[in-house]
Simulated scan of single mutants.
Amino acid sequence: MYMAYSNTNSTHTPHRSASTSKGMTFNSSYTKAIVRFVLLAVILGTVFSFGAMVQAYAGDGAATAKTPVSVNSINSSPKAVVQDQVVIQRGDTLWDVASTHKKGNENIRSYVDKLKTINHLTTSSLEEGQVLLLP
């Protein structure tokens, strides 16, 4: 590029012609908008992909429910049966407990025998605070 100088004292500085820079510069507002869009797309992509990974690895618990369980172990295990209990107070006897808790017209002597069998009693004596299971 050739520049001509003159002897005049002017403050005019030489500049390039407009034809050389035409189409080469971007407006700064467009550049900022594009950078913001790309940054927003990267952030959203990261957030959504992280959420998808968490959901994929967390699962909903269905995998543990589908694990095979031996049928024999379920059928042969003893089932917990909630039985009524009575705590023996001072002066209680097996006869008193049997007469209070027997069903309808059941014989008291047979109920005393059931109490002894269930609670593994060898005698009819009871102690204060002892817990008896009721048949």
Rank of each mutant, 00 (worst) to 15 (best):
M1V: 01
M1A: 09
M3V: 04
A4C: 05
Y5Q: 14
Y5K: 14
N7M: 10
T8F: 06
T8M: 12
S10E: 08
H12V: 15
T13N: 12
H15M: 10
H15Y: 03
R16E: 12
S17E: 11
A18I: 04
A18P: 07
S19V: 10
F26H: 06
F26Y: 08
T31Y: 14
A33I: 07
R36G: 07
R36Y: 08
L40T: 07
L44A: 14
V47T: 08
A58R: 15
G61H: 01
A62D: 10
A63K: 03
T64R: 09
T64I: 13
K66Q: 06
V69Q: 10
V69K: 08
S70R: 06
V71M: 12
N72F: 12
N72L: 15
V81P: 00
D84H: 13
D84E: 13
Q85N: 11
V86Y: 12
I88E: 00
D92R: 09
W95A: 06
W95T: 03
D96F: 02
D96Q: 10
D96T: 00
A98F: 04
H101V: 06
H101L: 10
N105Y: 02
I108L: 03
R109N: 15
S110C: 00
D113R: 11
K116P: 04
T117Y: 04
I118E: 06
N119G: 07
H120W: 00
L121F: 01
T122I: 04
S125E: 11
S125L: 09
E128N: 11
G129H: 07
G129L: 11
L132A: 02
L134K: 05
